[in-house]
Design a protein around this nucleic acid. Structure first.
Lengths: 234, 234
DNA sequence: CCTGAATTCGAGGGGCCCCTCATGTTAGCG
DNA sequence: CGCTAACATGAGGGGCCCCTCGAATTCAGG
């Protein structure tokens, strides 16, 4: 139960890649990390290959679909996020835990444009990171309810309103990245004030339902989603 | 000095377009309005021409640069916004005026993806609508300070923080458009609560400076900006 | 060293888009 | 009605990108 750690470093698990292949793979991953962080999920794969000093065919050999590359890059980040949610859950003060989690989440968003795209509805997340995002989300919902029970968090919001934090940060990070890379933190604390019980005024719209949030995360353009089924089974 | 008024309603001012030309122009504008509203500022011009039942060359004859088309489409919206800022200024209650303006602004963002792109830093706004956005912004800043003097608006925010509203709404509208087209209103009212004096907690980051906001609005990728200079003067 | 399997290469087909320009068409004035 | 300036057309050059596949290369075990 401790031996079989399912790390996603594939050079360990599947087959020990040939040495040159491993080298290329690493170069691709490195280049991709940079390109995705800077340009977001739509980064050009040809650009990545170029940057990695590798032919485009090689990139496709290692990562047949864009999503495979994304997965390789971001399971680590989702693990980090999951860890943060656990740290937060372990904290004494419910509100503090809540803040801690959100701070971490937003920080991850701010550091990486593709991650920002990712959590703000740009790809079928279910496919990624073994549902870690969902698990982190559930833990966050727990924190949320704890804080509500303590009376620090206003009553008329639901865990679904956390999506607002993610989405709004997506916009702000996007806009301020170049000029004021820490501005998002100011906005986060404004939103935290909005979530406090003390100053709750009636809200004009009902909260999103969990289903709506779910739809939002998947409705987006992603041609591969069905391809995942009709992939290989003959 | 008054004759050479450079109004942008070209059918009235410059030269009465030939009838067929006017018809085509109108068709292009209509198609463009739709395409931009749905797809944002990057909408394909070839698509617009196709939709308008017109050859691509015709589109370029009427609107040599993409920005010309954008300008045609959006001065109306900026006028609306400016009007809203005046209505708001005329209101008795400072806070109410403040809300009114923001509501209108966000509504405009929500209705049109390109407008959303536009106000959230996707193009050199200075070029557009004869600085109407700036004027509306100044009026909004006035409302802002009024509300602060009355003590309803917290003291530690500045008019520059209004940019957060725009940017965050940009993200939220983008994400929820398909599934919950009115969700932005809920978020707006959360943010309004954040701006209230009652529940102000210390903010960790300083506000943006006006210069930073300005940079944010122009730093973005816009290859035409220099072309505006080296356009025609020989 | 040799050989076969694994890996790499990169040209090339397809797609979408931007923008130009030589050629053909038309409106509308005289 | 006829003529000309204004207008419309759409093929075509250039760009960037996705992804495939047969030929060439390289690793590594025998």
């Amino acid at each position: 139960m401790s031996q079989q750690h399912v790390l996603s470093t594939p050079q360990a698990s599947a087959k020990p890649l040939r040495r040159d292949a491993q080298r290329n793979r690493d170069a691709i991953v490195a280049a991709a990390r940079k390109a995705f962080a800077e340009q977001g999920l739509d980064a050009s794969l040809e650009g990545v290959a170029r940057e990695a000093g590798v032919a485009i065919g090689t990139l496709y050999r290692h990562f047949p679909r864009r999503l495979d590359l994304v997965e390789e890059l971001f399971t680590a980040k989702f693990t980090e996020l999951l860890a943060a949610s656990e740290e937060a859950a372990a904290m004494d003060d419910a509100w503090e835990g809540f803040c801690h989690y959100l701070e971490k989440l937003c920080q991850l968003q701010a550091c990486d444009r593709a991650f920002n795209d990712l959590v703000s509805a740009r790809l079928p997340l279910h496919a990624l990171g073994r549902g870690m995002f969902e698990r982190a989300g559930e833990r966050a919902a727990q924190l949320f309810r704890n804080a509500q029970e303590k009376g620090v968090l206003r009553e008329d919001v639901t865990p679904e309103d956390l999506a607002f934090v993610i989405w709004s940060q997506a916009g702000i990070i996007q806009a301020t990245r170049a000029v004021a890379p820490n501005a998002w933190r100011r906005h986060l604390h404004l939103m935290l004030d909005a979530f406090r019980a003390q100053c709750a005024h009636e809200l004009p719209e009902p909260p999103l339902t969990p289903q709506q949030v779910d739809q939002t995360l998947t409705t987006l353009e992603c041609p591969e989603e069905e391809c995942r089924e009709c992939h290989e089974e003959a």
